[in-house]
Every structure is written in C-alpha cells, then in structure tokens.
Design a protein around this nucleic acid. Structure first.
Length: 150
DNA sequence: GCCAACGTTGGC
DNA sequence: GCCAACGTTGGC
C-alpha cells in the first residue's frame, strides 16, 4: 500500500466537505506531473493525506483513502466546466481522476511550518518541491504526520 | 500578484 | 530530436 498527499484549496473543497460527502471524485488535475502519479501509480486502498493549500495556515487536515483507480476525468469533455480542455479527445483522454473516501479529520491539523520544523519530515516533497498537487509520501512520513496530529 | 519549478509541447 | 516557450501550481 502506498501513501500520497493530495492538495486542495479548502475554499474549493475541504476535509469537512469530504466528511459530509463520504466520498468524492478527485478531478480537475491539470498538471502533468500530478497526472502521471494519478494515472500510473495511485491505486485502490492507498492512503491519502488531505492537505489544505492556499489558506492560513496551510496544513495536512485529514486522512482519506483511494476507492477507485484512475479513469478519464469527465470534466475535461464538458464545455461548461472550468476544467474543460478542448484539446483532449474522448478516444485519447489527456486527464484522469480517482475517487477517494473520508477516513478522518485531524483534531490538530499539521501545519507546513510544523512539517518544516520536524527533521524526520524534511525529505517530504511538500518541503522540497512546493508546486505539486499529487505527491508520493513514504509510510514513515505518513505515520509521523498522523502522530503529530494527535 | 509574483515568480520559480516542473513536464509537455511544437517550431525548426 | 533539440530546446525555448508555455501552462500550472502554490508559498510568499
């Protein structure tokens, strides 16, 4: 089982929204590096750290799990969607999405500042490569983050 | 709202 | 098939 970190702007979709909805489609990914992870490596049963980005403070806010592997993101073919991509054809979809389910909302979200200040987490891509909305996390890192949230 | 980092694109 | 330009991302 692999672990991942998914970023979302809480104004758009927060861990509280996921708690309410139970499951959601993780769509709208329009960055190639993130898509490659989604398409090639994210699998059913994988653990997901749910990260709130572009807010104050940015933090890992909860836990989710993958319940459906990569399939074509329907929004890329919908002209009325903000995620519409005219260059993507149904016979060769450019973008994919996965489904995730709620597992937990952290009582104490683990802020980016805290992660940066924790030596065991200094190798996280979150710290080393900021701009990546889907990223792999080691099992140790995931456990560390979860223990900081208690 | 700046701008740095990345993968992809496309002109040559 | 090189490589400059582009689009996306997200902390500051």
């Amino acid at each position: 089982m692999a672990c991942w970190l998914f970023k979302s702007e809480p104004d758009e979709y927060s861990i509280a929204d996921l708690q309410r909805d139970k499951t959601t489609v993780w769509n709208g990914i329009r960055n190639y590096q993130a898509r490659n992870f989604l398409r090639d490596e994210v699998a059913v049963g994988d653990e997901v750290l749910f990260y709130h980005s572009s807010c104050k403070p940015t933090a890992v806010a909860g836990l989710a799990k993958v319940v459906r592997g990569a399939y074509p993101d329907p929004s890329q073919f919908d002209p009325s969607s903000p995620y519409y991509d005219a260059k993507s054809k149904p016979e060769a979809p450019r973008w994919v999405c996965v489904d995730i389910a709620f597992k937990a909302a952290f009582k104490h979200p683990v802020t980016l500042d805290r992660i940066k200040a924790t030596p065991a987490l200094s190798e996280m891509l979150l710290v080393k490569q900021g701009r990546l909305s889907i990223q792999p996390v080691t099992e140790d890192q995931s456990k560390q983050v979860q223990s900081l949230a208690k």
